[in-house]
Design a protein around this nucleic acid. Sequence first.
DNA 1: ATTACTAATTCACGAGTAA
DNA 2: TTTACTCGTGAATTAGTAA
Lengths: 215, 215
Amino acid sequence: MISSVIFYLLKKGAHREPVRITTGEVAEQTGVSQQTASRKLISLERDGLITRVGGKVVVTEKAIGEARKLLREVLDSLEGTSLVFNGKIVAGIGEGAFFVKQKKYMQGFDKLLCFKPFPGTLNVSIGENDIEKRLQLREQKAIIINGFKDGKRTFGKIASYRCAINGIPAAVIFPEMSVHGLQVLEIIAPYNLRKKLSLSDGSEVKVEVTANIPC
Amino acid sequence: MISSVIFYLLKKGAHREPVRITTGEVAEQTGVSQQTASRKLISLERDGLITRVGGKVVVTEKAIGEARKLLREVLDSLEGTSLVFNGKIVAGIGEGAFFVKQKKYMQGFDKLLCFKPFPGTLNVSIGENDIEKRLQLREQKAIIINGFKDGKRTFGKIASYRCAINGIPAAVIFPEMSVHGLQVLEIIAPYNLRKKLSLSDGSEVKVEVTANIPC
DNA sequence: ATTACTAATTCACGAGTAA
DNA sequence: TTTACTCGTGAATTAGTAA
């Protein structure tokens, strides 16, 4: 478990190289006695979170990974995450509109994204370089629009994130059962974006996705 | 003191609005009993880190500030901080060269920045918009080159950060007793940057400063 | 100087439970 | 349901100290 002792060691740069750190110093900085600091370092070492050689301390990869994950999660929630994609408009097959129009989805969008989308999706093909960012995005906490059943057909849930396309508020959606691969972002907005932004197939657009930010 | 309970609350977005969070939930997520979670929330409330109204929890500004500070510090150390300045070359008064040439400083640069600088400084005037970033930079942990006394004269310490100017490794220095204001960044590098980058007064350059990153 | 053991102590914990 | 009280227990902490 990542403790304040690990945070202190990381602040000291003990993840890059062995750093001379005494138990007394840790004690003072984390508000415990020297003996407790000693015990904590021993137990961190036993748990494989640090290694010690000759009074110098190194934080292990394991601990670095855990710490980074925790910090990222909290900081993303605290400050939001912004990812910018550059892409080009590509033609859809009209399938998007059918899904977006579904009443239950509409209700979900209105409630969770705070707008009623225009019945249609704008497909943006992102560059090779942005695929990595796309994967990063999917690690962010999404706004989930629940799926539902409609007699014969099942409509899966939709993960979404608020975004701005060329500065206009919108949302990027990742339907559970998407027909699109990693290359295409599906965008919905309160209006017909093609008209509003005068877009046609091949137009270049900038999509700035902001995760972990409220309406 | 910022605890894992605060982190959990922040992940839940309890810094933006009151969030319904039960003691049982906190207990489960932080690996303690419901009773302990209850006690911890009570003590957080007593310490003014959270407030509770009708089962909903909000994290106070005080706690948010502390958490942000801690997270930033650790994350900066872990991942380094990168700040990009755009600026223009301006003429110096030759004073920089005199200081940089001092043997003691030279030794310090070589040891801490891992290069022997060309005896001269390149002055980059940054835009209005970048002043804020400059202040941000000075909050980062600097590489400190110690000052010294030379009989009559006192040479103050120099704070420095590694950087890349138009992609070339260099360092930006902030002498304790600088003649420059907030507008000008002083750059040193292993070579004559004016020649190497074919710069003249007024040339536009990009300076990417990377703090908290080793040589 | 620093580390970490043992012994004494405390105070944090979970169980049980009332509201 | 959830919260938070009391109480008994022991794990975690500090003091003292040896190495």
